[in-house]
Design a protein around this nucleic acid. Structure first.
Lengths: 386, 386
DNA sequence: CAGACTTTGTATATTGGTTAAACAAAGTTT
DNA sequence: AAACTTTGTTTAACCAATATACAAAGTCTG
């Protein structure tokens, strides 16, 4: 949105800068904040006073002197409120209660076998309610709910299309906001995962990140300039339906030879394929004991992942690629063929700085990212571009 | 860059808003600017006075009353200075002298057959110098030079890699700035084309645009949120080297089955292919008289373009795709197979709003976009995001 | 056609946030 | 013990936007 400048805006910008500086670097002194941001000491003092009043920042006594007066240590008050993050998967729902710093207070799982909207919604509401019930007593209470879903989501939190759930046009945000009366953010599961990795995972402070969520399908979350990119109608990143074989197998999406037919858990569905099991965790166990079919299949999938990744690298040119999702537990068997194919196929200049790593948050990244989106919505963020 | 807020920033923001509002909507009155921007009338008056002093805005007498005092009409002063835009192609160099409004004052072409750096640089310098010599007498004179090149460019204006020219690590910006003593912006030709279409072509005011430059290869310029997106090191958009055939022909880039092997002028190089000619303009002439080999080949290329486009649509989800470059003159024979394939293959939700059109600026888009980049560099742009 | 109303643009006093500079507080170094 | 450092606050000044009043120049209406 285009905004004009006035003093209120200036204050908003600076307050946002101070708050997020403290959030990212606490414990920190006012002097240090002033130095880092370039803001005058007096300005920082005033804004910190307001933030303390609002209980978003707390003062925690004197720190260690570095040759002069002792600094007064400031902390971001993670306990000013809490949020719920919930990830709707195809086979399960997972949810967390987080503080404002992304710290997990409570985590619950529930298997899911029925994808009917009323049932799923009932489960979600039940889980959220039980997490809210366990929430600690905080100044702001529950300040928001963030959800990650395996499908396309528009800017109003409507799930446009979730093929793996059989959903279309589900107004998830409205439904949850009505139920709980707090702001709800709904996002694609891969987008949420990207946010999770960016803020709490292996991708901290990366400017251009590509997060690949490989599981029942393949989705991707795109971070550009430190911010989540969503396409024209809010659902970019359906890279799983990028064709890597122009005349390949037909896909349910209408295209042919889609990446996720070769590099996701959908490969397990091929009936003529020799496999000792049809789920990733089981196949991992077989691979661990050296079962040949499992090893061979992971090798094939790793190569297929690499082929699709190359395409994304050549058009997106990210600094870092993080691979998450349920398939990421097979890291040890996928990474070698994957990196080999990428190294063979990418443009020489891309190889120099690109890193490909697997997620540490695993499948929890999306849930944490969803929670974080809710936190950021609460805290706000105002910035200037030149 | 992260910037703190103070009154100077406020003024900069508002002045930028006023200037660009006048630039885009002139002729316009102060009152109208105030209404459009939300800025106070007095604020607008003050800032306009400064812009008039700086000769960036001119007052052009009274306009037509709408029931009260006549407005004083303001114009953006396109003639406050001029810029040179130059596009380095594989077979030719084209350059323009533009005013600050993107109006073409002078345009020159020169064929190119020798890609040796000293020769190319000499040609470019000669063309720029001759355009500068014809520049009208303006308050600011030549305020910048913008160049579009067929290769990867980093943020310092270094041409990292231009396979079709055989260039590597050419410090084009530094070389030109040293010669002419004005700011130089260097950009990938597809990025420049995207800027051209966004500001002066068929894509005005589109937020998420994908510009495909199809010619000797395929490049793409990506506009996200109204701004040019460049990857981690400034050279995203090499979509031509996206594989659409995992085990296809090997490409000079190291990958296999690259899109541009099937959908660019590179297809003409296949020796076993029956074609009446090996350049796009000639083939177009054959197609016009119904020559079958030409028609068939354009059909095949159109389909191949559609296959690659589908991939980009599924991962980028743009609002609009503009196809430019030298291949765009074959529009009439490419568009049907292209749109057919895209319609067959894209996800249902993508079809709803996506438009695919061919450029009107044709191959001049890149040159105009390069000139525009130089203009924007001169005028500056400060904005706030919430 | 005269008075009322509209629209455009400017002048004036007020507001409010940042800032530099002085200052106070609390430490370390020599 | 005196000098220096570092941290944080107080004070006065500054300056851009703003609301308000006002001036200028038109149209509309009975």
């Amino acid at each position: 949105m285009k905004v004009t400048g006035d003093q209120a805006l200036v204050k908003k910008i600076n307050k946002s800068i101070v708050l997020h500086t403290i959030r990212k670097h606490s414990p920190i002194s006012r002097a240090k904040v002033s130095e880092m941001t370039g803001l005058n000491k007096a300005t920082v003092s005033n804004l910190v006073a307001e933030l303390c009043n609002e209980q978003l920042v707390t003062e925690a006594g004197p720190g260690i002197s570095s040759g002069g007066r002792k600094p007064l240590i400031l902390h971001f008050n993670s306990m000013a409120g809490s949020v719920v993050g919930i990830e709707l998967g195809v086979k399960q729902i997972t949810a967390v209660l987080c503080d404002l710093g992304g710290g997990i207070l409570e985590e619950i799982h529930r298997p899911l076998d029925n994808h009917q909207l009323p049932h799923v919604l009932g489960e979600m509401k039940g889980m959220i309610a039980s997490l809210i019930a366990t929430a600690p007593n905080t100044p702001y209470g529950i300040v928001g709910i963030g959800a990650g879903v395996p499908g396309m989501v528009d800017e109003n939190g409507v799930v446009l299309f979730a093929p793996n759930l059989g959903w279309e046009m589900v107004e998830l945000r409205a439904l949850l906001e009505k139920e709980f009366g707090v702001p709800v953010t709904v996002d694609n599961e891969a987008n949420a995962g990207a946010q999770g990795e960016l803020n709490f995972g292996v991708a901290r402070d990366i400017r251009h990140l590509l997060y690949i969520s490989a599981g029942a399908g393949i989705g991707s979350g795109i971070i550009i300039g430190g911010e989540l990119y969503k396409g024209a109608r809010g659902y970019a990143g359906e890279t799983g339906h990028m064709s890597i074989e122009a005349d390949g197998q037909p896909c349910s999406c209408g295209n042919r030879g889609c990446w996720e037919l070769y590099a996701s858990e959908k490969t397990y569905d091929q009936p003529d394929l020799h496999l000792p099991a049809r789920t990733t965790p089981e196949l991992v166990r077989y691979a661990e004991i050296g079962q040949e079919d499992a090893l061979r299949h992971f090798n094939v999938m790793g190569e297929a992942l690499g082929i699709g990744l190359t395409n994304v690298i050549n058009s997106f040119n990210p600094e870092l690629i993080v691979i998450g999702g349920t398939l990421s537990v097979a890291r040890d068997w996928l990474i070698e063929p994957l990196q080999r194919v990428v190294a063979e196929r990418t443009l020489p200049y891309h190889k120099q700085q690109l890193q490909i790593i697997f997620s540490e948050l695993g499948s929890r990244g999306a849930m944490i990212g969803a929670a974080f989106a809710a936190v950021m919505h609460f805290l706000g963020d105002t910035r200037v571009t030149l």
